[in-house]
Design a protein around this nucleic acid. Sequence first.
DNA 1: CAGTGGTCTAGACCACCCG
DNA 2: GGGTGGTCTAGACCACTGG
Lengths: 241, 241
Amino acid sequence: MIANDPRLVRYQQLRDEFALKIANQDWRPGEAIPAQDDLAKTYGLAIGTVRKAIDVLVAEGMLERFQGRGTFVRRAKFDGSLFRFFRFQTRSGERKIPTSHILNRETVEAPPSVIAALRLKGRVKVIHMSRLRVIEEEPLLVEDIWLPYEKFANFMSLSIEQIGDLLYPAYEEHCGQVVASASETLTVEGVNHADAKQLRLRLGTPIVVIERVAFGYDQEPLEWRCSRGPANHFYYHVDIR
Amino acid sequence: MIANDPRLVRYQQLRDEFALKIANQDWRPGEAIPAQDDLAKTYGLAIGTVRKAIDVLVAEGMLERFQGRGTFVRRAKFDGSLFRFFRFQTRSGERKIPTSHILNRETVEAPPSVIAALRLKGRVKVIHMSRLRVIEEEPLLVEDIWLPYEKFANFMSLSIEQIGDLLYPAYEEHCGQVVASASETLTVEGVNHADAKQLRLRLGTPIVVIERVAFGYDQEPLEWRCSRGPANHFYYHVDIR
DNA sequence: CAGTGGTCTAGACCACCCG
DNA sequence: GGGTGGTCTAGACCACTGG
């Protein structure tokens, strides 16, 4: 085992080692990691210790275990995350991925708020994008999205068709950036003039504002996104203990 | 070990056994359970198996472990739960428990919606209560609360002083009912006439509606509560993986 | 059937808390 | 110092998956 903090207990050192492999994409999202036996032999540890390290990563959501099949690097899949906050459905009642219309896409110098959200240093370029998400001609959500240019330079050269309706798969396929986790903040506001027009609402109608920072496996911010949708579609459920 | 499903693996049987002890208050909230060594001897199992069973209960939020001190039955403490959804604070910026004004308290036949929420059977009595929660003279939240009369008969004979600002401690102390978990649903609405008056808002101002069912350690519904507060104070944060 | 993760054991030793 | 939970071991055996 290399370069881990020897003050930590072994299974934590091992966890860090594994987390590094995932961050470096030595172990790639969707793929199986080596068997527990092999890992135990490789690192000269008992299998119980290896299992404990894997337990931690599983609890953190970075790995996924399947009995008899193996342990896999988990691919975060919260592009259905709208459904966590909104009751959007087709008229026939199904859940469907909304269509995305990219309204514009530009490279600009990062405004201060974006610098803060993406933890950028100094004057840097970012990609800014506006999207409208639609189900069956009905506009549901307007989004402003900001990406650090450094990591997403490729993105500007993609065609609309290459991007498709979901951004995270496009980030992964075309920019090598994998979203592993995110942090979201919800508030309620009255809709402003521009959004009212896009969403076909009366000025001042309550909307729910979701600000999300998405992180890679290395915990670096990858994307800052602000989504706004009509509050009358808002619906959220939590279990507390 | 008694009467558990022998098809389950041992640590799951043990988990059920422990859960039962908690539900029966053989092990009481806030108190330590026997040491792992003792439990292993009592049940004739290896300590690792006992630990695994405890792991499960800890993950479920029913137990809490402290190295060197012991393992304790966890007392749910989400009476600060307002703060999970609202940015309420005093003018000086502290978080403070809001004062509670009980506006009325009555015993009635359970309306259908309450029967459903509390999973009651047939025509039964329930206690209904309205509360207004206030910080520094400012009304923040109106609440309607419903309790099954069967479990909370004592509650009607309590004085306002005995009840105090927080209900869950009162349920525990005076009715022997301990809240272990809850399930909440959030939506946004326009305020109605009655609530507008209590909250000093204009009719139709957006409010966040929180419906909560609270459960005991035995998973039986104990309380149904509907809280409404001004949406401009709403603020919620989640981390996703 | 081979290979994977899951369960369970019996015990040694460490780390921490508190009187 | 005595008691608690936490780590780690070495190995046996079970349960599930997929070719």
